[in-house]
Amino acid sequence: MSIMEIIGGILIITGSIFLFLGSLGILRMPDIYNRIQAGTKATTLGAMSLILGVGFLEPSWLLKILIIIIFIAYSNPLSSHALARAMYKRKWYPLIKGDPEKMDAYREVNTNKEKEEVKS
């Protein structure tokens, strides 16, 4: 085994373990925002590392593999952000231990908007 194959193998194993941890997080976390957090971070690095590992094993594919990595790094946070905002606008509020007024700074924006709509 050459050095490239060893690096590629290590990257592939790490990536698959992080992908597994991401979906375990989705299964275990108590509410949707925490699920989005665990899902986004772990699957982004997991997929990037696994795909880069394949790039080390087949160096002639490297350009297209870089395109896929850049696309994943760009699209994954965007979709999770869109989803989180949509969930909040649908009034599925996050699970909060303690005082919601203090710990949830975004709620005031939404309640103010509702009051304006009622007035007009």
Binding site: G15, G39, T43, G46, A47, I72, N76
Partner: peptide
């Protein structure tokens, strides 16, 4: 979303 990302990898 997670299924899609794992599918791509």
């Amino acid at each position: 979303d997670t299924l899609t990302t794992i599918g791509v990898a």
